[in-house]
């Protein structure tokens, strides 16, 4: 089969739903329910206006999600970077055991934890606090982040650090000048994965936050979509989806290069 055709099919498969959302968000309610009737007002921005002027306005949720996403990514990397480094320095047997435990934790369905997390939130008064959400998010992303960063550390030639030791660089200085810069591609791709997880997370956000001005994006969207089972606000929902994807698209575009090289690093010994 033709290569171009295959690529076209794949593009349609992955971009189709996104295009449909954009199309829906720009169509008037009338056009959505009667697609073949020729209406005067076929295209409209009214859904965007409704979403952005509602109370609280939709950008508030974007901001909330952004705050939670950035703080959980930061917290996660802060803990995962030293842990991933240490995993290469401990004895082989302990390292194998630790990696197995991490893989187990990474594969564990986190939804099963959420009742326990709810108890914790109640005990420590973490409910309705935006930044508190980054605690479970950073913790749940930890196993995968450690494993990814660990393989990046593992791929660094050990002589680089040896040479730095002989130059007199302390552990912290080696981190600052050598290790962090050299694994930045892997750090970028790990950061994106953690950020995505926090951006998309639903059950914990739903149960920890009830104050409507502190909702994160997924919960806020669910409220729009499920406002009534008799009239589903397709247009508003689609507009919210499009707005919610824009920051992610921007993020991936900005970090495109390090992400791709980070995801494929270690595949071929350089």
């Amino acid at each position: 089969m033709n290569r171009r055709f295959l690529i076209a099919v794949l593009l349609l498969w992955s971009l189709g739903p996104l295009m449909w959302q954009i199309y829906t968000s720009l169509s008037s309610d009338q056009a959505l329910t009667q697609p073949f009737a020729l209406a005067d007002h076929r295209w409209t921005l009214v859904h965007y206006r409704n979403v952005l002027t509602s109370n609280p306005p939709f950008w508030r949720y974007l901001l909330n999600s952004l705050i939670v996403g950035i703080s959980s990514t930061f917290l996660c990397l802060l803990l995962a970077l030293p842990a991933a480094y240490a995993l290469n320095r401990i004895s082989t047997r302990l390292a194998i055991f630790s990696r197995l435990a991490l893989v187990g934790a990474a594969l564990f369905p986190y939804v099963l934890l959420f009742l326990g997390l709810l108890e914790l939130a109640r005990t420590f008064n973490l409910g309705n606090q935006l930044l508190a959400l980054s605690l479970p998010y950073a913790a749940l992303s930890q196993p995968l982040a450690i494993l990814l960063l660990n393989s990046a550390f593992h791929d660094l030639p050990p002589e680089l650090e040896d040479a730095a030791k002989l130059e007199g660089l302390s552990l912290f200085q080696r981190f600052r000048w050598i290790l962090i810069p050299l694994i930045s591609p892997a750090t970028a791709s790990t950061a994106i994965l953690v950020f995505l997880f926090s951006w998309n997370e639903y059950p914990i956000a739903l149960t920890w936050i009830s104050d409507s001005s502190k909702l994160t994006l997924p919960v806020a969207m669910a409220r729009i979509a499920g406002s009534s089972i008799y009239s589903v606000p397709y247009g508003a929902y689609a507009a919210a989806t499009v707005l919610g994807s824009i920051p992610l698209v921007l993020l991936v575009l900005i970090f495109q290069k390090p992400i791709v090289s980070g995801l494929t690093s270690g595949a071929v010994k350089g």
């Binding site: 002589e159 680089l160 040479a163 730095a164 002989l166 007199g168 302390s170």
Partner: peptide, 28 residues
């Protein structure tokens, strides 16, 4: 190792790939 005054040259050179020649020499 950080406290011994030892100058070592490695087979693989062990230069930092993200720093210029000058910065490589300056770091120490």
């Amino acid at each position: 190792a950080t406290q011994r005054a030892v100058g070592m040259v490695f087979q693989s050179y062990a230069l930092l790939p993200h720093l210029s020649v000058f910065d490589n020499l300056e770091l120490g």
